[in-house]
Design a binder for these strands. Structure first.
Length: 541
DNA sequence: CTTTAATCAC
């Protein structure tokens, strides 16, 4: 067992650069090896040599269609995958760019310089895709941006400048962010409300509330006006980033200068409700009426949210009565909030009563409403009903969203419906709905539990192809769940993989893995994992 | 592409 582990743990499944093309190509190559390799080879771990044809032999639950889907995907040509995200890029460009961008760089200038030495054709589409791909890595993204800017026959559009501003803001490179905004200002006509909204949002997210407010104060310098929407934008950003206090301050200061509207009041009501300061929210509601605006279903739903969160249905019903008395009709959002909360509180029938009520009042259900309905039916174990609602959506003129698929998948996983869960993922892909980490989490859990390694690797590939990062959280899940399933070798392999990508494992999966190795008396493997952990921690120190 | 609420995982 130890020998097996050692081949497994020393197999570099991923190259060090996590999100690069190289990694993607390499990973695809691994799957290719995995599904085609017949003879023994020292570099390939034993688990990777599963003969795909035999995997499903004793498992009737997986239909041939899903099986062939998985198999077909595993044999994907890695270059095709790379091309899918680089668009019309030629094959030689893919190889050239991947080689360049997957090295480690200390500055954007270095990246630009490296790109400069090559003969690569340029298009706005390609620059955008590359920036998107590297949007979490501002050094590379900014390098690509700087390189493209000086190419002949090429000028960045305002859209790409905005994107760059956002990437720099996300990376908290505010000095560079402002530099870009100044540059846009000099170009003339490049700055829009979108630019400033992004900048204010990123500043607020970094806790720089004062700077976000200053950006608003100086907005006229960029040819924009301090109108009510700009003010609302700022308040929205401050509230979303946890400072309703600053939002209220700025509102108080500017309400004399700017003609505020009902939306301004609602944003504040929502802000105070989110931090459970209901008295302050009520004060805003009174203030709203003094300014001649009647509270609407939006204003009330802020309070409903709080009561629903507390499962205080007495207050929910009282408020619904109050709304009725004041002639404020519930909307689909109102029904969704209440129905969802009742369903979560296991009051399924009461929740479904609201569905009836909504239909009676000729309110039209939308996707989020159906998602809630599917969710509560699933939680109540009514799989058949959930499925029926899901399949009835198109007939009702509502297109299932990514969340619809995620809800259905999560529900199928809860009841260990492996085949159904994979079929839904396939359907989701066909519908061009983008899966996110929430889509994959229940699937990863289920297939860890079922010890279906070949499906796990398929899913991890699927994530990479869909630009969903396999982050520390995902690795923790894999390691912990595989330990639970007594698949310690695979858990070790994932541990090594995450360390090789420069991540620092969380304590809890690490301890779990060590305990598991100790219990099995796998001394060497334990020492190896301990060494890896020390290395990983050393990198940040 | 000017602005506000609800739905999926831990």
């Amino acid at each position: 067992m130890l020998a097996r582990l050692q081949t497994a743990t020393f197999f570099p499944i991923f190259k060090t650069n996590v999100n690069g093309l190289c990694h993607l190509l390499f990973n695809q190559l691994c799957t290719k090896i995995e599904s085609t390799q017949v003879t023994e080879s020292p570099e390939v771990p034993s688990w990777a040599k599963v003969n795909p044809a035999s995997v499903y032999e004793d498992d009737d639950s997986v239909s041939p269609t899903v099986t062939s889907w998985i198999e077909g995907r595993r044999l994907d040509d890695p270059r095709k995958v790379a091309q899918r995200f680089l668009g019309e890029t030629t094959e030689s460009d893919v190889v050239t760019i991947s080689k360049i961008l997957n090295k480690r760089y200390s500055s954007p200038e270095e990246v630009a310089e490296a790109l400069d030495g090559c003969d690569i054709s340029i298009s706005e589409n390609k620059v955008e895709r590359l920036m998107k791909r590297y949007s979490h890595d501002w050094v590379v993204a900014f390098g690509v941006f700087k390189w493209a800017k000086v190419q002949a026959w090429y000028t960045h559009s305002p859209k790409l400048y905005n994107f760059m501003v956002d990437i720099l803001g996300k990376a908290k490179q505010f000095h560079l962010m402002w530099e870009q905004i100044e540059e846009m200002n000099n170009l003339g006509g490049y700055i829009s409300w979108f630019t400033m909204a992004k900048a204010m949002r990123r500043l607020a997210r970094a806790g720089k509330y004062k700077e976000a407010i200053d950006a608003f104060r100086g907005i006229e310098r960029f040819g924009l006006r301090k109108d009510v929407t700009a003010l609302n934008n700022l308040m929205e950003a401050l509230i979303k980033e946890n400072s309703v206090e600053h939002a209220y301050e700025i509102f108080s200061e500017f309400k004399k200068l700017v003609q505020v509207n009902d939306i301004s009041f609602n944003i504040l009501i929502n802000g105070w409700c989110k931090v459970r300061r209901l008295d302050d929210a009520k004060k805003i509601m009174e203030d709203m009426e003094k300014h001649g605006f009647l509270p609407d279903e939006f204003s009330y739903s802020c309070f409903l949210n709080v009561y629903c969160h507390d499962k205080d249905f007495q207050k929910v019903y009282a408020l619904l009565d109050e709304m009725r008395d004041k002639g404020c009709r519930p909307r689909v959002v109102t029904y969704t909030i209440v129905m969802h909360a009742l369903g979560k509180a296991k009051k399924t029938n009461e929740a479904l009563g609201f569905y009836e009520k909504m239909i009676e009042s000729s309110c039209v259900p939308d996707a989020p409403f159906y998602n809630s309905l599917i969710f509560i039916l699933g939680k109540a174990g009514r799989l058949k009903d959930a499925r029926e609602v899901f399949y009835s959506m198109p007939k009702q003129g509502v297109t299932p969203s990514a969340i619809t698929y995620t809800t259905m998948i999560s529900c199928a996983c809860d009841y260990s419906r492996e085949d159904e869960a994979l079929k839904l993922l396939k359907k989701m892909e066909r519908a061009s709905c983008k899966p996110d980490i929430k889509t994959y989490t229940p699937l990863l859990k289920l297939f860890c539990k079922k010890k279906r390694m070949e499906v796990l690797y398929f899913l991890l590939n699927h994530m990479i192809n869909n630009n969903v990062r396999i982050d520390v959280e995902a690795y923790s899940l894999l390691i912990t769940r595989l330990c639970k399933s007594e698949e310690v070798e695979h858990a070790c392999s994932f541990f090594e993989e995450m360390v090789s990508k420069g991540m620092v494992p969380r304590d809890s999966p690490y301890k779990r893995l060590i305990t598991e190795l100790e219990a099995r008396n796998m001394v060497e493997a334990k020492e190896y994992i301990e060494k890896l952990m020390l290395n990983a921690k050393g990198i940040i120190c």
